[in-house]
Design a protein around this nucleic acid. Structure first.
Lengths: 235, 235
DNA sequence: ACCTGAACACCGTTCAAGT
DNA sequence: ACCTGAACACCGTTCAAGT
């Protein structure tokens, strides 16, 4: 049916009221589909059938939107029901693995985590649980404060390192295939380096480009948690 | 003197021939003055008295320019003259501290390091030295390959975490004053949190926002190097 | 209070045309 | 081979004007 004369033509979408929550959820949908760089004020506005200026009534800036997205996503991390003091180190690892998995599932959102200090409720809840775990493990407050930073940096950096290559994948291609392709290219490059200047790199080209993923993360996690535990004041 | 009739007006700068080296040095000058986000193709071209299209004869893309800048900057890292096997752990720390200092001195260039796999000659030279150190320390190749990644992530993440706040400082203001200001603001925020939901964060607000800097880095560095050394096959 | 269109001052990259 | 101007398809943010 055509629009009757004198009636304003309806927009294609019935106008849903804008809200911060709706904007954040829409932005995360764009993130998941195309990566963080595709999340622009203009793009999110377009997805909501409006112009970029309309978003500024609900979020202060693009950076603020990015932090809201991060906290929204970290709400997916399922924390253990309670601190089990006798296995605090294992729970420490579980929380770190869960955070890594959630961040990995949302493209390169970890870039935001490394770039900002935690202020959102979900982000703080994870920090609170980690502190409770270390307290239960007898870690002095000053050490716990340092440890929480270092552990967070490991998680973020690990996710970012992978997500960068994945984010470069042209849409349509299998990102993991592109990832392996890229690694293989690096290996050939390292193997072709002059062996007199770079004997160890050339000799270890295979190990340096081994399917990293979980192994690299577990290595850092294990060393860090053991190192933290060495500061325990009493068992 | 006015330009004689029929003579083309000279540009203000005598035209220096463009080259990759000149472009990279100019880009690093902009980085040092205003941070990585100010390094755009247009801005670098303007600094050289030309248009952005002219740069593409010497660098393939902005991302490639960023990686060239990173390697240029890492050329400032002074590596020890030789591997001293009996103190390989201490040398490992020295190289990490030197890398951190150089990256810190160039604003948020560490973002590029975390986002790319090392291919430049200076970057590779640092990696080669680290591998030689671990080899001297009896670390198995597979562990050394993991360790070099983890150590690099720690250095990059640590520098980035600081540089982000510093990069936000409006030009003209003292960045370290702004940095302390920002930390103090976070502390007040954490102290004002509901103590029933976040007892440990509220209770440890002071430790969590303590003047971080070197302490945090040395903490992570010490734990990682000790952890790596625990994999040594023979002394 | 919320939303909008238009504008401002920017981006990276391509390409045909010049030397 | 190198350089250029102009164009294309984008940015974040502000602001006066509308409802």
């Amino acid at each position: 049916m055509p629009t009757p004369p004198g009636r304003r033509p309806r927009r294609t979408e019935p106008r849903r009221a804008l809200s911060q929550g709706l904007i954040v959820r829409t932005a995360v949908a764009v993130l998941d589909a195309e990566g963080l760089d595709a999340v622009t004020m203009r793009r999110v506005a377009q997805e909501l059938g409006t112009g970029p200026a309309s978003l500024y009534a609900h979020v202060g800036s693009k950076d603020e939107l990015y932090e809201l997205m991060l906290d929204h996503v970290l709400g997916e991390v399922e924390l253990p029901a309670r601190v089990e003091p006798e296995r605090w180190q294992e729970q420490m690892k579980e929380v770190s693995r869960a955070s890594r998995a959630v961040l990995s599932a949302h493209r390169d959102i970890a870039r935001v985590s490394l770039a900002s200090l935690p202020t959102g409720p979900n982000t703080l809840a994870i920090g609170e649980f980690r502190l409770a775990l270390m307290r239960a493990g007898g870690i002095p407050p000053r050490v716990a404060a340092l440890a929480i930073d270092t552990l967070g940096m490991l998680v973020d950096a690990d996710v970012i390192e992978d997500s960068i290559i994945l984010a470069k994948t042209p849409p349509g291609e299998d990102p993991w295939r592109a990832f392996r392709e890229h690694i293989a290219e690096i290996r050939r490059y390292l193997e072709a380096l002059p062996p007199d200047r770079f004997p160890n790199i050339v000799g270890m080209a295979e190990e340096l480009t081994a399917e990293g993923g979980d192994g690299r993360f577990e290595f850092g996690l294990d060393i860090l948690v053991r190192g933290i535990a060495s500061y325990a004041e009493d068992g």
